[in-house]
Design a protein around this nucleic acid. Structure first.
Lengths: 175, 175
DNA sequence: CTTGGACATTTTAAGCTTCAACTAAGGGCA
DNA sequence: TGCCCTTAGTTGAAGCTTAAAATGTCCAAG
């Protein structure tokens, strides 16, 4: 994740050095990316500074928060869209923090059930409250209407992208 | 990263400094994030599969491509918005690839000038062409008008966020 | 000239991430 | 029962990332 170089000029117009009408798709991508990157950087910093944790750990706890009975590693892996090896290491650290527990499933001894501890749940609630407040602050200058418009348009983008995503792989095959 | 709990019942409207509550902000963030993540994952995969490189290396080459005379490390660091130590390691690998050169500045021996090699420029042009085509494909179902609308709206978001960004840091101090 | 602060970069430690190789357990089937 | 294939997780190597410490250079005030 990298914020390309279109991060500075964001205003109504930006420098296109000679190609005003082309590259619209690329410009949309760079703008989406720069918005997300600048916010995500701030979120990571706040999580470290205010709560001494990281975004991956927060995300994992968020996934567990809605599952009082816990989740197995493979569910976490799929839910967070990261590799299983990744989940292993993040869970390792959450256990060091005392935020989650790891127990072997009774019926299938291959499976590991990860669950939020009482401390983990308490801590997550504290973080989630702040987390939500950050976005209320960041988007505070946008009206509800604007946000809803954007939600819809980005939903359309996501739909369009999901549909086209598989075609990208095929593009390189011939080249 | 996904939906949060509801620790904050928060009244319908509690605009303090222009902050509408109700999780709309959070939903916008999660939607922006999911759009960017799914695309970025695909871009990284394509860069590896088709060109044997990574997004950070591509980004660095993209920055150099518009600067025929090269850039010093600190310029790269600022332009890419990453730490200077990070630039060092990515440049190391680009040199192994033969894509960039590293020379000491004549006037200031502390500075290192990084420049695209002929091979690097050739390779970058190949990649940039594919890179642009991926987005034309991904956003192919959106009209130019839709894309332009989105560019404007996201520009507004970026402006709003940039303005509020510094306030986030202060939020934790009192808590 | 020397000293000290500022600046440019590298190095190191720690964490996230992926992939590939590996261990372990389940389940089918002869 | 014994063999094989699948599934669940872990481990290790490589790369990106940051912050903090270490190097080396510049420059200006004595």
């Amino acid at each position: 994740m990298d914020a390309q170089n279109e991060t500075q000029p964001v205003g109504p117009q930006e420098k296109h050095d000679g190609a005003p009408h082309s590259k619209l798709s690329l410009r949309l991508w760079l703008r989406m990316l720069s918005c997300v990157m600048v916010i995500e950087k701030q979120v990571r910093r706040q999580l470290i500074d205010q709560f001494g944790t990281t975004l991956p750990r927060f995300d994992l706890m968020a996934a567990l928060e809605r599952r009082p009975d816990g989740m197995v590693m493979s569910e976490l892996s799929k839910s967070l869209m990261v590799s299983s090896g990744n989940v292993t290491s993040v869970v390792d650290r959450l256990i060091e923090d005392g935020h989650v527990s790891r127990t072997t499933a009774a019926n299938d001894r291959r499976s590991i059930i990860v669950k939020l501890t009482a401390k983990g749940r308490r801590e997550f609630n504290r973080m989630a409250e702040a987390h939500e407040a950050w976005f209320d602050k960041l988007f505070g200058d946008l009206s509800d209407y604007e946000i809803e418009r954007l939600l819809i348009r980005l939903g359309d983008v996501r739909t369009a992208v999901d549909k086209r995503l598989p075609e990208i792989d095929a593009m390189g095959d011939s080249a």
